[in-house]
């Protein structure tokens, strides 16, 4: 199914900005909020994993329901997970399209990667403190 991805600040993400190796940061940044009816439609429940794909890339996230979201729209906190699917195109403004990325979402059993392994996939070396 096709959705429109929005990203933004959340208080949970904000609370863990100085502890990004912490599992709680991962939960805050790797959760995708969906309208409960949409969740029924693609047959996922709270805590299930989904693969989210855009023209730019894909990432595995865990689902959480949000009644405030209109159907067809999903929300992920800003951070490294969302940035796996947001395009770097800025249309000459310097600013990527963080608010409107078309994505497809499907259930998956794959794990949600840790922040460090996500960065390892970008060519980095995990640092564990």
């Amino acid at each position: 199914m096709r959705f429109l991805l929005n990203t933004g600040r959340t208080i949970k993400q904000g609370s863990f900005v100085e502890r990004k190796n912490n599992p709680s940061y991962q939960v805050a940044a790797a959760t995708i909020l969906m309208n409960p009816v949409d969740m029924l439609e693609i047959m996922v429940e709270e805590g299930n994993h989904v693969r989210v794909k855009s023209d730019t890339g894909e990432v595995v996230l865990q689902v959480s329901p949000d009644n405030g979201l209109t159907r067809g729209r999903v929300f992920v906190s800003l951070g490294p997970y969302a940035n796996h699917i947001v395009s770097p195109e800025t249309h000459g403004t310097g600013m990527p399209d963080f608010k409107v990325t078309p994505v497809s979402i499907e259930p998956t059993d794959d794990p949600v990667l840790t922040v460090s392994s996500l960065m390892e996939r970008c060519g980095g070396l995990p640092y564990e403190d």
Binding site: T56, L78, P80, N83, C122
Partner: peptide, 23 residues
């Protein structure tokens, strides 16, 4: 690394990146 699209993170890993930060 957290707030730029993935392609940017990949380039940061490719080049010498130095970070001055407490955390």
């Amino acid at each position: 690394g957290a707030h730029f699209p993935k392609a940017c993170a990949e380039h940061l890993a490719r080049i010498p990146t130095i970070q001055i930060d407490p955390h």
